[in-house]
Design a protein around this nucleic acid. Structure first.
Lengths: 332, 332
DNA sequence: CCGTAAATTGGTAGCGCTGCCAAAATAACT
DNA sequence: AGTTATTTTGGCAGCGCTACCAATTTACGG
């Protein structure tokens, strides 16, 4: 006995089955307004019996908020973004909101298109990575009647809400750390900085700070393609091939840094004696490697949580700096 | 001059501004039905001028499909699920569908609740991990007028569509591989098997196959908490503490295996001479470690792609076995 | 230049639900 | 019992859009 119902039970059918008015059913289901206990039981029984599932599409159209939060992220391969999603997800679920997402591949044009199609769902809020958006994106977002949250970066002017930390400060502190430890022949291995503008910001202040400290960047290698352990390994190999005398290398993130570390392990390069390695992100894995990775821990999950919290509370526009934490591991 | 419009321009306003009927605007915007080039220009101009963004909520209510695909995944920390999302995401976007997701934390009850709230959006399809669902979940799904896709597992009876591979077969092949390489004192380090039922299936056939091969599992350690590199490292340490004579260890996945590998590197345990290590998943990082990790590569991204493809094509119910590939690395 | 086929249009009835308001039922007081 | 508060109800008009159908315009052939 496995009959499929036509298309879905409607609230009107439930009302008829329970012998009450439509608005009564609506009130009971949303637990809003007043109704007697007896009525509630009748309605719930009918709901149960018919297997009624409310239609939020209709509900949203009739009322106000969609309780939908849109995430437009550059990538799902980069743990940074999935961590933010993860942090936000729990909070949103607790407040009966739903998360919708789309992936831009670090392409601002695609971001614009995706924001447009997200806005078509009249979301409560749109979460974006960072500040670099096309004019079209900004215009649409401004015109839309929804909250805007820019996450993971606070070096710029926020449209509405911003939750993250300063990538400029991150680059600066990383440089200071290496200088303070006495490294003077410093190199950099990174991935595509034009697309990952946040990594670009870190790189910029990193270089600047080194120069101010009297030990300007000796060499760098930007590896084509996305950040990955393999690219980090290949990148360091190439860099050292050209500049064997470096005493420290800063990587665009921990994935890249781990690759570099593995290269050293494989080639008998003593870390940090012969070469120091500094990453960025504070991935868990860096705490389990033979030597704990020196890196900068970023509060990715917390950023998601705070962002979601601000949205569900409809907080006033503000910028929240969650900072980061230097982890003095054993590789630098 | 930054005035926010009240609440959003409607199609009716666009029609008025363009001096045409509402249905004409609708046709032009959806590029459906016929209209003259001149009309199209007038409409598009008005759309542009007013900054009109169609309301999909209303559109969906009036027409049929929501073009929403719901993902109900156990976790966002486990790369397995984000990879599936990633694979599906691109295909869905190309077909103008949107992805909505929710996280169950491996809790079937929570899954049921989340499926219910997802169905409220009348999605085109719901994607779930594996076959283990509550009766309530199955009942709702069956009654709902949407496609159901169970991913990452095909060891069971599919509700509708299923895309993945056999975890039983994966466990079996892993055991055969170790036996064939001559290992006889085999151990296992895993994480919570009750929650991650797919890992449980692999473990079951792994043990069974070992026993059939005359070298039953010597010892095992189930580490509390989720799978992670750190837990893998700690897990192996504990296991070896009790069973120092093992010659190979199978891990519940690559994260755990990497942890084990790092433990060996740190303690001078020769791999695979003294101890062989076999993982599962085929993470990229395993190809960049000093020794390439022996593991089973699973087609996670492809699973997402195929699943999405089946949904957008409204394919008939079927089970797609995408298999897996044994990677004979350097650790076993 | 007219009749007929084909291409364009506009009007309008819902889609399923919520918000508002008035009606009905009940409770709380003189 | 007679009123006046208070709590419960039901009816119905939209929310913004699409599907359907009828009306209008344009194209085509003789």
């Amino acid at each position: 006995m496995q009959f499929k119902q036509q298309e879905g039970v409607t609230l009107a059918e439930v009302a008829r089955a329970a012998g009450v008015g439509e608005s009564t059913v609506s009130r009971v289901l949303r637990n809003h307004g007043s109704f007697s206990g007896k009525t509630k039981d009748r309605v719930m029984a009918a709901v149960e019996r018919l297997g009624y599932v409310p239609n939020r599409i209709a509900g949203t159209l009739a009322s106000a908020g969609s309780r939908l939060v849109a995430f437009v992220v550059p990538s799902l391969s980069n743990i940074v973004f999935t961590d933010v999603l993860r942090g936000a997800s729990a909070t949103l679920e607790a407040h009966r909101h739903q998360a919708v997402f789309a992936v831009t591949d670090y392409d601002p044009q695609k971001e614009e298109a995706l924001v447009a199609s997200m806005l078509a769902w009249r979301p409560t809020a749109v979460m974006l990575a960072g500040y670099e958006h096309t004019q079209g994106t900004v215009k649409m977002l401004r015109a839309a009647n929804c909250r805007i949250v820019e996450v993971l970066d606070i070096d710029g002017i926020a449209l509405d809400l911003a939750v993250g930390f300063s990538n400029h400060a991150a680059g600066r502190q990383s440089a200071r750390f290496l200088l303070q430890r006495g490294y003077r022949r410093i190199g950099y291995v990174g991935h595509d900085l034009d697309r990952d503008t946040r990594a670009g910001k870190r790189y910029a202040t990193f270089c600047q700070t080194l120069a101010q400290g009297g030990a300007p960047l000796r060499a760098r290698h930007i590896h084509p393609g996305p950040s990955s352990v393999e690219n980090g390994r290949a990148g360091l190999k190439l860099l050292l091939g050209r500049n064997p005398d470096l005493d420290a290398v800063y990587f665009s993130n921990d994935d890249m840094a781990l690759g570099g570390y593995f290269h050293c392990l494989s080639h008998g390069i003593t870390v940090p004696g012969k070469l120091a390695i500094l990453g960025y992100n504070g991935l868990d894995i860096g705490r389990a490697t033979p030597q704990r990775l020196s890196t900068l821990l970023t509060p990715r999950v917390t950023i998601g949580q705070v962002a979601a919290q601000l949205v569900v509370n409809d907080a006033p526009p503000q910028v929240v700096d969650l900072g980061f934490q230097l982890i003095e591991g054993e590789t630098a």
